[in-house]
Design a protein around this nucleic acid. Sequence first.
DNA 1: GCACGGGTGGAGCGATCGTTCTAGACTCCC
DNA 2: GGGAGTCTAGAACGATCGCTCCACCCGTGC
Lengths: 193, 193
Amino acid sequence: MSETRGRIVSATTELFRSQGFNHTSLKQVTAQAGAPTGSIYHFFPGGKNELGAAVVRESGAAYQALFEVMADEADDIVDAVGGFFDGAAEVLEQTDFIDICPIGNVAREVANTHEPIRLATVEVFAGWTAALADRLARAGLNADDAGGLADTVISALEGGFMLARARRSCDGLRATGAHMRRLVEAALAGDLE
Amino acid sequence: MSETRGRIVSATTELFRSQGFNHTSLKQVTAQAGAPTGSIYHFFPGGKNELGAAVVRESGAAYQALFEVMADEADDIVDAVGGFFDGAAEVLEQTDFIDICPIGNVAREVANTHEPIRLATVEVFAGWTAALADRLARAGLNADDAGGLADTVISALEGGFMLARARRSCDGLRATGAHMRRLVEAALAGDLE
DNA sequence: GCACGGGTGGAGCGATCGTTCTAGACTCCC
DNA sequence: GGGAGTCTAGAACGATCGCTCCACCCGTGC
């Protein structure tokens, strides 16, 4: 409805990307969004926690939509997985290693301290792994194996982000993507057990 | 030398584990360590940043030493990798998902905002991947492949921690460990290219 | 023209942050 | 015994935190 709400959410998303949840202040949000404090509390009466949860949910949904589009365009699920890692590496390099997944940032920060936001991250991860597992199952994997493999790919992606950003190099992330590609390939070929 | 310094570092390590860098206040550190503010600034004149960097470096070295011991005791590098994931999952469950790697927590928080700590995380990751790559190379892998595979395993481990802690379940972490085991096995068998 | 409600704008609250500073206790060498 | 240096102890500082509160603007329905 209101475009102000959208500006607040996207400004906060950007700030979470580069500084995480705890290091982002509402003053920074108001400055970057060009919105006053009152508007934040108008749209998010629960304050920073509610805003944080909304950011996690909405940008989580956006990433999932992006994955679906890329997977639809790819030749098969193997290429889709490999392409997602390569695409992420490219974006990371182009943005000077700032444009990292904000959900992963927040997830490790709040898991023990901000229960409502933790639940939002769980929802997002569940959506991602379900979307990937579904495509793996449609490619021929049984449901159990598809779930475990999806968890592995998402774990490697998030951990790869962490390593790439710390090092300011995407070499490891690309190598990880290549290994995930290989892993999916082998699983679909029936080499899993 | 001083046991107070040790108490400060280990108290901070515990706090970083469960709340990360930005959410940990020096007041909490003094309370948990039973040491006054003055002592923190005596041992770490650079304040919170210097303390944080020391915690990253020292607990990073401790994890590396643990890995070396486990790898020495394991039958081979394949079992060592698998065992490390399983051991981590067990510890996570026993500590109600609190005892997670503090370096990974801090790494994503500070990568864009606290350069000295970021450099400490880079050093630690370099030590870990070098230690793992060295064992992979000794098992027969060429140096390039060993480096890429080590990055993949460390990424999957850290990402697996993130997922496990958010979900409060280690199922995905164990599945990821099994896949890493399989990946190392395949690489050593020469199925890499 | 007027009342009303969604939304804007920002001053100011108490609490807490990282840090500084000074005073004192303890240990060791002269 | 005395002086130096190491370490402990915590009060206090300015800055900043998340948040509350209220005055105001403006489009819409009557």
